[in-house]
Simulated scan of single mutants.
Amino acid sequence: MKLDLQQIPRENTLTKEEFLAKYFRPQKPVVIENFIKDWPAYSKWNLDYMKKVAGEKTVPLYDDRPVKHDEGFNEPHAKMKMADYIDLLKNEPTKYRIFLWNILKEVPELQNDFSYPDFGLKLMKGLPMLFFGGRDSYTFMHYDIDLANIFHFHFDGEKQCILFPQSETKYLYKVPHSLIVREDIDFNNPDLEKWPALKNAKGYVTNLHHGNVLYMPEGYWHYMRYVTPGFSMSLRAIARKPKNFTKAVYNVFFMRYFDNLMRRLKGQKWIDWKNEQAVLKTHKALGIS
């Protein structure tokens, strides 16, 4: 038995009016296949180009090790020159990823290669973020702290994306006081006997290729696995639904600080307790013994 996933709809391109009516207002994901062909980035951006323009930059790297109590929020697991990292991506499988790498801050010239599309939403123009990964590297299933509307532009290679709306949270083994689910769930090939609540979750899946744009609605859970080495850029717009906006404010100004405080006070016991609660609360709510 596999996860209950439907393919994300794909469109060749969309007008602002079509996007708002068909996907934003009903909060449904979509892949737009040929929206950015007029961007210089479409023809220029690949791993070799990034090595050329950012090779001397030192970049933070992350892998798939579980969260530890003594690690700071988004603390990197390693650092490396971008040129060396790209050589690593191209020459051998690696779990190391780059995420939330700000183009405007690190390589300002890259902003000349793209424009901010008019989807009818006000994009946060100071936060274009790049994400890189090696073959079979992946992110844990999570949602973003600000529950933003996200436009994810993929470049070079292939990436698998699995999404769930917030309505499915009760089936996903969410870890309390966090933005993640149990880190030992392999969403690429989940053990549904060990994690039976996942049988009830209804989500979406797609594979992105060079030039594809994925729209992820507000607060959508997402798991990203790099089928081949590659990278993506995300642009975001603030959550519009009052419930999601309120939750974003709570996450940013309270939840993460409370979690960090409890890590300092209780150490690994806090992490272990949260992981236990993820199972107990999920199974109790669904009547699973």
Rank of each mutant, 00 (worst) to 15 (best):
His69Val: 12
Tyr62Cys: 05
Leu47Gly: 11
Asp63Phe: 01
Lys81Arg: 10
Met82Leu: 14
Glu75Gln: 11
Phe73Gly: 03
Lys44Asn: 09
Phe73Thr: 03
His77Tyr: 09
Asn46Arg: 09
Val53Met: 11
Thr58Phe: 04
Trp45Gly: 02
Glu56Gln: 12
His69Trp: 11
Asp70Gln: 10
Asp84Gln: 12
Asp84Met: 08
Lys79Val: 14
Ile86Leu: 14
Asp84Tyr: 02
Lys44Thr: 07
Lys51Pro: 15
Asp70Asn: 12
Ala78Leu: 09
Lys44Tyr: 03
Asp48Ser: 15
Pro60Ile: 00
Asp48Cys: 08
Ser43Cys: 07
Asp70Thr: 06
Pro76Gly: 10
Asp70Ile: 06
Lys51Val: 12
Lys68Thr: 15
Gly72Ala: 10
Ser43Glu: 15
Tyr42Val: 12
Tyr62Arg: 03
Lys51Ala: 14
Leu47Phe: 04
Pro66Trp: 02
Lys57Trp: 02
Leu47Asn: 12
Lys57Val: 10
Glu71Ile: 09
Lys57Arg: 03
Glu56Asp: 15
Asp48Arg: 02
Asn46Tyr: 08
Leu61Ala: 03
Val59Trp: 00
Lys81Pro: 13
Lys68Gly: 01
Ala41Asp: 10
Lys52Trp: 10
Met50Gln: 14
Lys52Thr: 11
Asn46Asp: 15
Ala54Gln: 01
Gly55Leu: 10
Asp87Val: 01
Ala78Arg: 00
Lys44Trp: 04
Arg65Cys: 09
Glu71Asp: 15
Leu61Phe: 00
Pro76Val: 01
Asp87Thr: 08
Tyr49Asp: 10
Lys79Asp: 15
Lys51Gln: 15
Lys57Phe: 05
Met80Tyr: 00
Asp87Lys: 08
Glu56Lys: 03
Asp87Gln: 13
Asn74Ile: 08
Gly72Lys: 03
Asp84Trp: 06
Trp45Lys: 02
Phe73Ser: 11
Val59Glu: 05
Pro76Leu: 08
Lys57Thr: 13
Lys51Phe: 04
Ala83Leu: 09
Lys79Ile: 04
Asp64Phe: 06
Tyr85Ala: 02
Pro66Asn: 00
Ile86Cys: 12
Glu56Leu: 04
Glu56Tyr: 03
Tyr62Met: 07
Lys68Trp: 06
Lys81Cys: 13
Met80Gly: 05
Ala78Pro: 10
Val59Asp: 04
Tyr49Arg: 01
Glu71His: 03
Pro60Ser: 06
Val53Cys: 12
Asp64Met: 13
Arg65Trp: 05
Val59Gln: 00
Glu71Gly: 06
Asp48Asn: 15
Tyr85Ser: 02
Asn74Glu: 09
Ile86Asn: 05
Ser43Ile: 08
Pro60Phe: 00
Ala54Arg: 00
Ala83Glu: 13
Tyr62Gly: 07
Asp84Gly: 08
Lys51Thr: 15
Asp63Gly: 07
Lys81Ser: 15
Asp48Tyr: 10
Glu71Tyr: 05
Met50Leu: 15
Ser43Gly: 10
His77Asn: 11
Pro76Tyr: 00
Ser43Val: 06
Lys79Phe: 11
Glu56Gly: 10
His77Gln: 07
Lys68His: 02
Asp48Met: 14
Lys68Ser: 08
Met80Trp: 05
Ala41His: 03
Asp64Lys: 05
